[in-house]
């Protein structure tokens, strides 16, 4: 298990390889479909200080507001990342993001951005929403809650021992590409087996 503190140092992230298990400590920002569209089209500055050398988490959490006004994460697993493929590379370069956390992996443009920027894609366990919500020790701030709604807002969170597996690295490695190619061969065999 490799321990990563956020904001992260570029050389530490560049040294990570596909298959490495990672535990994150520090600040993570949730952003999904509407947030990515906004970041590409409007390039807002309010989120910049939270993303520099930081982590984007593809997640639309269930959040609960306590009586004192503070927010608490109830359920917060990853959402499917590939939907952000059209935006991700640009967002990573614009905001100097070091980690993209999600599920299902991403495509060639994001993989290229990982190499350029010095970033990795970290795969969290899809559906493990309670386990991961418990790693969110504090919800520090939220942006665009009224405009985007709970799942789509930017939630700035402090996490401890948030686990994931590197499935795309800054050296161009992608577990998703490897599994895709191997299963493509199997598909041909199975289909032609009649």
């Amino acid at each position: 298990m490799k321990r990563i503190e956020l904001p992260a140092a570029e050389d530490q992230i560049r040294a990570l390889r596909v298959g490495d298990e990672v535990a994150l400590f520090g600040r993570v920002v949730t952003a999904r479909d509407a947030a990515h569209k906004l970041m590409v089209e409007k390039r807002p500055d309010f989120i910049r200080p939270f993303l520099q050398d930081g982590a984007i988490y593809h997640c639309g959490p269930v959040m609960k507001q306590e009586k004192d006004g503070r927010w608490r994460a109830v359920a917060a697993g990853p959402t499917t990342s590939i939907r952000e493929e059209p935006y991700q590379a640009q967002v990573m370069q614009e905001y100097r993001v070091r980690l993209v956390i999600g599920k299902g992996g991403m495509g060639p443009r994001t993989l290229e951005a990982c190499q350029k920027v010095g970033a990795v894609y970290l795969h969290a366990v899809g559906g493990a929403a309670v386990l991961l919500a418990d790693c969110i020790r504090e919800v520090e701030q939220v942006f665009m809650l009224d405009e985007l709604g709970v799942p789509e807002a930017f939630w700035v969170c402090r996490v401890e021992d948030f686990r994931g597996v590197v499935t795309m690295d800054a050296a161009g490695g992608s577990l998703h590409q490897t599994v895709l190619e191997a299963s493509r061969k199997k598909r041909e065999e199975l289909i032609s087996a009649g």
Partner: peptide
């Protein structure tokens, strides 16, 4: 390790009446 986490998550969710998945 994924499936171990999945099963841990199921137990935690049931105990605390929280959604198994945020979606």
């Amino acid at each position: 390790s994924v499936l171990e986490d999945v099963l841990k998550n199921c137990a935690l969710a049931a105990e605390s009446s929280r959604p198994v998945c945020q979606d």
